[in-house]
Structure formats: C-alpha cells, structure tokens
Amino acid sequence: MDALFGDEQRDLQRTVRDLLTREDPGPAVWQRLCGELGLTGITVGERHGGAGATTVELGIVLAELGRALTPVPFLQTAVAATVLDRSDAPPAAEVLPALVAGGLVAGLATPAPPTRWPTGSGPALTGVLDNVVDGPHLDLLLTPAVVDGAAVLVAVRTDAPGVTRTTLPTLDRSRPQARFALRGAPAVEIGDAASASRATDLLLAAVAVESAGAARFCLDTTLAHLRTREQFGRPLGTFQALQHRCADLAVLVESAWATARHAMWAADADPAGAAVSAPLAKAYCADAFRTVAGEMIQLHGGIGFTWEHPAHRYFKRATSTDLLFGGRAWVRSVVAERAGLPAVR
C-alpha cells in the first residue's frame, strides 16, 4: 500500500538501474532480470515461486526498463505473469514457474475495439491479432476473446496448430511486433470479461510507467546537453527560452511519473479506480513521452537528428507507445466512457 516513493523502492530502482547500465542489452540482461533478480515474477505470489510484491514495485522496474529502452520482452511477460497470478485459473500454476524463471515468454494482445476480438466456440479460436507487441518472442499469448457468445480472457500457445505468426518490421526497433492468424487455435479460458478488461488495464498502466521512465531519461539527457554545449559564448542552458521549455518538460515528466505510479498502485490496491486511472495514465504518459522525446531532438540540434544519438530511439518508442495498445483515440474514448463524460468519438 506504500504508494509514495520510499527507501525500499529507491533500492529496487538502484539495483535495476545498475544492472541495466552495466550490461550490454542482449540475452545476458534477460537472464539476469529473470533468473538472478527474479523480476519477471516480482508480483507473483510466493507459492508460484515469485517475490510476492505489488504492482507498485513492478512499476519501478518498468520505469527503469523504459529509461534504458532495453529490448527485452519484460513488460509483456511480467504483466502476463501478474494477470495469471491474480486470476488463479488452473493454467496459472502450470506456467507461472516457467514465467518467473524466464524460460517462457508471455504477453497480452490488445485488440481494440472489442469488435476485433477473436471468436470461437469451445476451445477453438479464430481471428487475426495484429500488432502484438513482443509477438516474435511470445510462447504464450493472452487475449480477450468472444467464446460461445461470452467475453473472456484466454491463453493460446503460439506453437499450437492453427496459429500462424508473422513477424512485422517495425519503426521502433526496440519493440518487435507480430501478427497472429488464428484458425481453430486451441485456447484455454483463464478469466471472464472483467478479468479481460483488468488485464488490458494493467498492460496500459505498465506501458504508462515505462513511458514515464523513458521520458525522464529524455529530459535528463537534454539537460546534460544544455549544461555543457556552448553557443554565443555561454552554455545553452542559460538561455531563458530554453530554460522555460525545459521547465514545461519537467512538469510533464513529474506529472506523468505521478500519474503512472498512481495507476500501478491502483492496479492491485483499487481495482475500481484502476479502470479509469490505467487508460488515463496510458493516454497522458504516452503523449507526454512523445512531447519530451520530440523536444529532445530539437534541443540537441543536428546531433539529435543522427542515427548514432539515442534521441531517435526514444522518439520512435514514444510513437509506438502512443499508437499501439489500442491506440490514442481508443484509449481516450475508454477514459471518457468510464468517467461518464461526453463521447469523444
């Protein structure tokens, strides 16, 4: 219930940050994240081999991964593990130990609006799930679906017959995607309509907190540049026009971090509130991240426009964050609907 940032959270943050700055991004990082630190199972109950922490702690880890833009399927796997752990459906006991150990990669598809959900009767599912984040790595795919007329949350093994996976080339090269065509694919039900919607909400909150971490990195890097780069005989950071722009970015970064953390807190502690705060955090943080990443390019000048400089990787991640996971318009319409505001589309 410790929503505020305390010492334990700071320690966790430091541990993850150290790891991510020390290691080259690659298979070794994934191994350390899962095996050594057990972080894919951070929210998983101890009976399944997890660390038994809350979604608040998961948020700390995700913000650091956003900061480093580490290309590992962590967000998806940790969210899926949380969903399975909280669902307590029979498949949970079966797959959670492997998820915690990093031997299995899982993730959630967000086909929005619901008219795009795969449909099926009994265990056989049909439909197309497009733009599934981390799709190329997934062993286990969770998705909302309509089975025998009822909305449910199901799990599909990606190596099952009836599943065709196509890897998509992506603008944001740190976040791979795949399209899954399901033709009578065997699916296991792991929850009802409410769990499907909670699962999507958790994914949105997770993406929000990752964005908040990434946005902070963009601002930190930009500030470092403005402090050292001199033009007109003085550091760029002394120019008020740039100071004021940075102040506006700082407001975005601080408020995105608070909003995302609140959503991660609500995911475990206040499910009713999470139904609004998760999509709201996703919409706000993705937008903030896009703004900050764009300003990062601008305030670096020419160097910010190069392939070598990290700015473009963040800019592209921000873009994919905003347009994926249901996309900006859908997420905003969900907020409006759940908050009882006039429909925005």
Binding site: S255, T259, P342
Partner: peptide
Amino acid sequence: IADRLLDSWMQLQVLRHTAVMTLGA
C-alpha cells in the same frame, strides 16, 4: 468540445495524482 472536456478532466486527475504523490512526501 467533447475532446476539450476530456482533456480538462484528465488534466484535473493528473493534477490530483501529482499532488498526492509529491506533496505527501
């Protein structure tokens, strides 16, 4: 107008979350 109302409402929640998360520290 619907879009502006949504923006205003969302920003108000953000104000609140930011105050809750930072001023209570």
